[in-house]
Design a protein around this nucleic acid. Structure first.
Lengths: 227, 227
DNA sequence: CTATTATTCAAACGTTCGTTTGATTCCATC
DNA sequence: GATGGAATCAAACGAACGTTTGAATAATAG
């Protein structure tokens, strides 16, 4: 045949991964049976075990497929910023945007399934299964270290303990925002069309997170809220 | 008998609820079987269905037991603040602390199982099961409305859309912080003994969230992070 | 004490789960 | 066109799931 792409390589593998992203996002890992998964993907029941070995191994492959490129993109953006700055300190907001943007951009990828993944990822940080949390942590660790170093250079006066906690808060805000986009409606009847405008959301997130990261140091003030 | 509390009322119900809090927190809802649950609680396998009707109804009872008093405490603190202020506008940080404090205080309740619950709650906002999310939303809605109104009075110049999003971010930061306390170690080798000092954590959260809530309005600035 | 209700118990229900099996089909290579 | 490894298939495996049952026991009321 002349066209290389008529029958894509590993078509079954890809179909399974795509269906898994969508179904895991909707119902979670445990609640998604291999039977539903394979029938949705249009493949045989045994295909998951044949191509991945087990359901757990499928989950790991699913995260690696998306997370490695996304974190690489984050680090590349940060590298580029520092190269352009040529030694000058970076504004915190630019570092924040370098971290936030790849995730938000993926949420606009409705056709490629990126949104499914990003919402799945957001809720995985609080996943009970220790093995999954460990995998995510392992995949994230180098990127986290890289950004911590960048923030340290950008905000040398911020104590290390405080920086770590504020990165934790920022990471939490982002992952919760990506995962629980429908919860906004809980707070207010917001127009749903706003929800997935990644540019607007990045601006809002950047403003919020930058202010939080650069907040005055906390002081024990024993603020009274009740008698 | 003279002592009223020798055989507490509904001892079996309480034993089940306590064990469920602990096990659901460790393994999640689906991964916790009724068999493990009842054997951990030291009750018969059929007790869950006898006392609650089903496993799902047990989950609902579990949330109601803790969430109703906690949200009542939040609203009561806010009421008290407004009463004391006698019409004067409240500082945003005090409203934030009124919301954050009951959750953080519960994380110190290791003996009563409050910490188990609060960590379980934190990860439930991103729970895939729609029924659970709906329940949580229903239990939270009045409290959210009440705090939204307080923030609106405190920050009249902040557009409503922006306030809603920032409340969303704040809610996300809090719930993630409560749920994923172990993830801090992912970012840095922080001393674990800091992790559950609720007073210190409240100060840190209050500083971060207040700055984020009061941040300058976001501007579309097309901040470049890469070529 | 007896009658009645509430609770506990061991056992089994039917269903669904992830995984495995062995035959069959596909497809590139000689 | 025959050969051999990769992929797909229908079928079945044993285990674990949430729930139900009916008898046994405990607690309460008449």
């Amino acid at each position: 045949m002349s066209l290389l792409a008529v029958k894509p390589q590993h078509a079954t593998r890809t179909r399974i991964l795509d269906a898994a992203e969508s179904l895991f996002m909707q119902h979670g890992f445990e609640a998604t049976s291999v039977r539903l998964l394979t029938s949705t993907a249009g493949v045989n029941l045994a295909a998951v075990n044949y191509h991945f070995g087990s359901k757990d191994a499928l989950i790991e492959a699913l995260f690696r497929r998306r997370l490695d490129p996304m974190n690489a993109e984050r680090v590349a953006a940060l590298d580029q910023l520092e190269r352009e700055a040529a030694g000058a300190p970076l504004a915190p907001e630019r570092i924040i945007r370098a971290f936030v943007r790849p995730g938000l951009r993926m949420i606009e990828d409705t056709a490629g399934g990126g949104r499914n993944f990003i919402r799945l990822l957001g809720r995985t940080y609080t996943e009970p299964a220790a093995s999954i949390r460990a995998l995510i942590g392992q995949l994230y660790a180098p990127t986290m270290e890289r950004f911590k170093q960048a923030f340290t250079r950008s905000l040398p006066e911020l104590p290390r303990d405080e920086l770590v906690w504020r990165m934790h808060f920022m990471f939490g805000t982002l992952s919760y925002t990506l995962a629980a986009t429908d919860t906004v409606q809980l707070i207010a009847g917001c127009k749903p069309e706003d929800r997935y405008d990644a540019r607007l959301l990045e601006d809002r997130l950047a403003a919020f997170l930058t202010a939080g990261l650069c907040a005055p140091l906390p002081q024990r003030r024993d603020v009274k809220i009740a008698a």
